[in-house]
Design a protein around this nucleic acid. Structure first.
Length: 218
DNA sequence: GACCAGGCACATC
DNA sequence: GATGTGCATGGT
């Protein structure tokens, strides 16, 4: 079994997932922070609120009062925390990169990653999400679903951490932005439908790729 | 009413 | 280094 085979099965079963298509840079960046440990549905409400008041704009977000911002993104949950995290990132871009996201994104993948990780409130997944979906860098995003699917199917050691899981994809696949984008979204899809808190592997497109030992429980 | 959702930082041992 | 806890809304 290879990650290529698994990708083909998922693609054949589900097709394109359309994550973050045709949206602006700031909208994608805001989404990566708002979706931390939060359902996308709630994030959409918060983003619509921002759109309604014309705040999907880096400069305006940078200058708006933090408590006002918090109230506007309230539906996304952890709203005061996330307002602070957004402000931290905007502070970086507007003081170090002239408010120009493309200037920040012109860094090589590793430097961009390290720079993003230096911001309080941005961890590995958020940094990689921004790098992949906003900056179009070929870096694979590992999230809770990805970890669950990899471990449930015995593709990686149960104790593996973020970096190990990411290396698995980086080592076995061509470094392609669109592939990484689609693959991650497909894994989230199969994770939601079949690898939730209770294993439901009947009908799972990856069922025949399960290890002989059977399904491990998280 | 419990449990979950596309994490992360910080405290404590 | 591992483990626990706060952050918060909305859906099932």
């Amino acid at each position: 079994m290879t990650l290529h085979e698994a990708y083909d099965r998922l693609w054949n079963a589900y097709g394109p997932q359309g994550w973050w298509p045709g949206e602006t840079t700031i909208e994608i960046v805001v989404g990566t922070i708002l979706t931390q440990n939060t359902s996308w549905k709630n994030v959409e409400r918060a983003i619509e609120n921002l759109r309604d008041v014309g705040l999907l704009d880096s400069q305006r977000l940078h200058t708006i009062d933090i408590d006002e911002l918090a109230e506007i993104i309230r539906p996304a949950g952890y709203y005061r925390l996330k307002a602070r995290r957004l402000k931290n990132l905007l502070q970086l871009v507007h003081t170090q990169y002239s408010g120009q996201w493309q200037e920040l994104f012109s860094l090589d993948t590793n430097s961009l990653r390290e720079t993003l990780l230096s911001v309080n409130g941005i961890g590995p997944e958020t940094a990689d999400s921004i790098a992949l979906y906003a900056a179009n860098k070929p870096t694979f995003v590992i999230d809770a679903y990805t970890a669950r699917v990899l471990k449930r199917h015995g593709w990686i050691d149960f104790e593996a951490g973020y970096v190990e899981m990411q290396e698995l994809f980086h080592d076995q696949l061509e470094q392609n932005v669109l592939l990484f984008n689609e693959y991650h979204a497909l894994i989230v899809r199969v994770g939601k439908e079949h690898c939730g808190t209770q294993p439901k592997c009947n009908g799972c497109p990856l069922q025949e790729l399960l290890p002989e030992s059977g399904v491990q429980t998280a």
